[in-house]
């Protein structure tokens, strides 16, 4: 069996974490930029899913397209060596309301 071309052999399966948007204005430009800025620090591939639609977590346009307002449930995925650390930092952004409100 071939290993997946992304992420290497060590973490062949993506890590998954559920988050909820709790800041009032939702994932608008500023939170999206903050998310992408954080995500690009990591080598892992990051994905965000909303109701079955998955976008690249390092793409601002992708994130904005999700239009994830307050109360939206999202699934974060990360695949790669630093996936765990990436998910920890990224989900903390949601908990901290992206330093808004």
């Amino acid at each position: 069996m071939k290993s997946s071309p992304i992420g290497g052999d060590e973490h062949p399966r993506p890590l998954i974490r559920e988050v909820v948007v709790i800041n009032k204005q939702g994932i608008h430009a500023r939170p999206a930029a903050l998310f992408v800025k954080t995500a690009t620090k990591f080598r892992a591939d990051i994905g965000i899913e909303k109701e079955g639609e998955v976008v690249n977590g390092k793409s601002i346009i992708g994130l904005l397209m999700l239009a994830a307002g307050e109360g939206t449930k999202l699934t974060l995925t990360a695949q790669g060596q630093d996936a765990e650390k990436a998910l920890a930092e990224l989900s903390k952004l949601f908990e901290d309301k992206f330093s808004e409100d």
Partner: peptide, 17 residues
Amino acid sequence: TAKEFNDRLIARMRNEA
């Protein structure tokens, strides 16, 4: 452009909520 887009987006998310 950025601000106009963002205002539209925030309004849309509010309506959906």
